[in-house]
Amino acid sequence: EPQEGKRRKRSRFGEENIAERNLIGAQTVLPSNMTPLQQQCYILHLRIEDANMRLRTGRFGYSDDPSKRSPSPEPVYNGEGKRLNTREYRYRKKYEDDRHEAIQEMIKLNPNYHVPPDYRPPVQKLED
């Protein structure tokens, strides 16, 4: 709740350290002799691996404590009264979109890149 009329800000830093928990076998301090292209590929690879891990395990990194989460959007329900934009759904979509974007950039930088086996590009809407 607001205190003394001032908005209490929440840091964008998360509590978990992905590398410490060995969730992805990533090196988190980079060598100095990487070229900008190598650096770019490394970051893309990391984003893809991170999204893969989260989509596979369902660990989306949001807190169980509502006071530590950002406010949820207005609920959207389907015809049977089932909520569509659940937290799980929103986070899954966020990481699927992020993975898609990273994979597309990676393919541009490295045409030989092999996409993750469970990756399906989103269905493109046909437009005239």
Binding site: G14, E16, N17, I18, A26, T28, V29, S32, Y42, L46
Partner: peptide
């Protein structure tokens, strides 16, 4: 700082350190 922040998330993205 590099060791402490590298691997932490910032707005949901994994931070990587360099010099």
């Amino acid at each position: 700082a590099a060791k402490a922040i590298g691997g932490r998330t910032f707005a949901g993205r994994v931070t990587i350190s360099s010099y």
